[in-house]
Design a protein around this nucleic acid. Sequence first.
DNA 1: GTCTATAAGAAGATAGAC
DNA 2: GTCTATCTTCTTATAGAC
Lengths: 215, 215
Amino acid sequence: MDTKHRILDEALTLFSEKGYANVYVADIAARVGIKAPSLYKHYRNKQAIFDAIIEEMNKRFLEQAGALQINGADAKADADIYKTISEEQLITLGNNLFLYFLHDDYTRRFRKMLTIEQFHDKKLADAYMKQYADDPLSYQGMLFGLMVAAGVLQTDNVEIMTLHFYAPIYMLLTICDRDPSREKDAVKTLDAHIKQFNKLYGRSEEQIKKNRKKK
Amino acid sequence: MDTKHRILDEALTLFSEKGYANVYVADIAARVGIKAPSLYKHYRNKQAIFDAIIEEMNKRFLEQAGALQINGADAKADADIYKTISEEQLITLGNNLFLYFLHDDYTRRFRKMLTIEQFHDKKLADAYMKQYADDPLSYQGMLFGLMVAAGVLQTDNVEIMTLHFYAPIYMLLTICDRDPSREKDAVKTLDAHIKQFNKLYGRSEEQIKKNRKKK
DNA sequence: GTCTATAAGAAGATAGAC
DNA sequence: GTCTATCTTCTTATAGAC
């Protein structure tokens, strides 16, 4: 990784831990292994470093194309998986998703930085909400809509059903961000949550088998 | 309100909007209507102002004695209300609760400040989680437990049921904190959420009437 | 591109008059 | 208790040698 990019990486780490104002350009430089004035050969000033991070974040978010996407492929592929999924598989998917969000280094640091800096800049608040509220709800909602059409889930309000699935995941995520030692407990709760969700929204095993045969 | 207390009030407002590091003692002083050096007759330094705010917050949180408490009275009174409550009343209660959290000036500013500063100081992260995750879940869980015992709600996992009730409220709250213009939409979603919750966890009207007669 | 030296300007805090 | 003047320290950023 070249110096220019390493600066962004180290800056993101520091910003996510202390917030923009509490990080000094000398701190960033030290972690990169150079002196502060050398930074200015790569970026015009401190704000430019921050802006570059946000720009890269937006690029990555776009690439993800929907925060709660399961396999990174297109939506139709995900939808097919969902239609014939068993409870255990749904739990595994939920777990992987949650743990990816929680552990992926970039995602985690971005999320923490956005949390700290969101009230400084409306754009950051918007980015946060898009990434962790609106996009997951709309993507999951679309998948669940297909599952309802396939008869795997039953409800007359897909939007609320999606909220019931995702809000607990979101809440557990904010808890673990603040206190990583609670992760083990959160995973257990997540399991129980998905099982209960599955029970409430009536996925009948027969319907799933029927869908498998059709395939 | 005396000067000493006005300093805390104005400082809380500024901290909740910009974060500790971006607020200058001169800003606080200006809002109080004095000059910066005069502040030092009331508080030893900037950090002492912050600490005093946290201390007052802890005092207020203790007084609340459970974040999601409905009427501020004892739990048994709340439980009695819940046992004979109609769907409409449950929605009204949920709404009032949500809007209180969202609009109450002190609560709102504290929450925003904790959100911004939580990664600087573990104690703040703990305070945030206690106030907005653990306490609401444990208090609501206790009430719901009584309701299940009374036959108004049905589940074999009260903890998860409580999470299903509260997590959407929590998520809507964090959305509205970041973008107040979404409040109207959030209230609608909240309504639909509680109705769905009510349907899923099977409150039978007959059982409620029976409970009313017993009284 | 990296360094040392240093300028320029904040921002926190104190001294001492009133 | 509040003020003006001032000190001190910290931090960003630049100048200019290598």
